[in-house]
């Protein structure tokens, strides 16, 4: 029972990208997966599809540590374009950092639903997708 959710992964780590895509596929959670290597690439895509709800992601797994535009910089830009977006997007911050400075900072941003420490487990991933799916169905 594959979800129709558009899942978006923003991370510069090739291996992480690979494992996330493989996990989502193997758990048959969704077929619609987008991958960007840094915040700027993801932001450019969203600006190009501001009103294209079909293409815009439902959920974004956002890494912090990335070149060009890191996770926090992406959030600053996202807050700015959010009113223009026609779609509600859920954002999880996913990072290998257990640095409390990073965690606190993420928690203070209301647009971020939760902070998840890498590696993300299969159960966590399944739970997130299921919940979003059901709420979306309502």
């Amino acid at each position: 029972m594959n979800s129709t959710l558009n899942v978006c992964i923003v991370d510069d780590d090739d291996i992480y990208q690979f494992t996330m895509v493989k996990t989502l596929r193997s758990l048959k959670l969704t077929d619609s997966i987008m991958v960007f290597s840094d915040g700027e690439e993801a932001l450019d895509f969203m600006l190009d599809n501001l009103h294209n709800d079909k293409e815009l992601p439902d959920v974004i797994f956002l890494d912090i540590d990335m070149p060009i535009m890191d996770g926090f910089q992406f959030m600053e830009e996202y807050v700015r374009i959010k009113p223009k977006l026609g779609k509600k997007i859920t954002i999880y911050m996913v990072s290998s950092s257990v640095d409390p400075v990073d965690i606190d900072r993420a928690k203070k941003i209301s647009e971020i639903t939760d902070y998840i420490v890498k590696p993300i487990t299969h159960d966590q991933l399944t739970g997130i997708i299921r919940e979003l799916d059901s709420s979306g169905a309502l």
Binding site: I15, Y16, K22, S97, V98, D99, K118, P119
Partner: peptide, 27 residues
């Protein structure tokens, strides 16, 4: 702080990758 950062990002990330890959490898 630099080293905390380094530990968090530069050491934990590859280790977590290794764990993920290992999981796949087993399966």
């Amino acid at each position: 702080a630099d080293f905390t950062h380094i530990t968090s990002h530069n050491l934990r990330a590859p280790v977590s990758n290794l764990n993920s890959l290992l999981g796949f490898y087993k399966l």
